[in-house]
């Protein structure tokens, strides 16, 4: 009982914080939040004028081809309020059928070949593919392994013609955003 009251109070406090930030002028807001001793979270949102200049709608689908999950961490970071990828009209989607861009991470493992190909084929034309990270570029540290194979020709072609490589291990969220911009500019 006490727990739930506490929780409700906290929720209301979070709402109030946001409202106060909206309504009050900045200096006053600072003073109020100090007085309330609220430890409101503050952060700088990444500014990318190149990307916010134009309005668009882009759906992205992720495809794991054997990554070390480092690239996934950075992809996931794109959705947090600091990078807030949705404000650019870019959204992660759950189905390859909905996708405009496929983001491939990791070297291409043999065990995943079939699944990866099916995902690629489920995607409607035009198939734009981003190869994310050093692994996806040339295999990275896993380059010479027996478990890695060359990507099927069609996927490779899609990357070369309508996609990009984003180098880095892993690339920072900012680099990924810029890479997405490059793909969009390419078409």
């Amino acid at each position: 009982m006490k727990n739930s009251r506490n929780a409700n109070v906290t929720v209301l406090r979070l709402f109030a914080e946001q409202l106060a930030k909206l309504i009050l002028p900045e200096s006053l807001y600072k003073r109020v939040s100090e007085a309330m001793m609220s430890n409101a979270i503050t952060f700088e949102r990444l500014r990318l004028p190149e990307l916010s200049a134009k309005k668009r709608s882009v759906f992205i689908r992720h495809l794991d081809c054997g990554s070390c999950n480092g690239c996934e961490i950075e992809l996931n970071a794109l959705s947090n309020p600091v990078y807030d990828i949705e404000r650019f009209g870019i959204k992660f989607e759950s189905s390859p059928r909905h996708a405009d861009i496929l983001v491939m991470t990791g070297p291409f493992t043999r065990n995943l070949e079939e699944a990866a190909r099916l995902t690629f084929e489920a995607m409607p034309e035009p198939r734009r593919v981003i190869a994310l990270g050093d692994c996806a570029a040339d295999g990275g540290v896993f380059k010479d392994s027996y478990a890695i194979r060359a990507r099927p020709g069609e996927i490779d072609e899609a990357i070369r013609e309508k996609g990009v490589y984003i180098p880095g291990c892993p690339p920072t969220p900012e680099e990924i955003l810029k890479g997405i911009l490059d793909v969009l500019a390419k078409n």
């Binding site: 946001q18 979270i41 952060f43 309005k55 309020p81 807030d84 949705e86 404000r87 650019f88 009209g89």
Partner: peptide, 14 residues
């Protein structure tokens, strides 16, 4: 909702 989540969110015409 984006605003309450500290995000900027897409425009209303998205």
């Amino acid at each position: 909702e984006a605003w309450l989540e500290l995000r900027q969110g897409p425009g209303i015409f998205q």
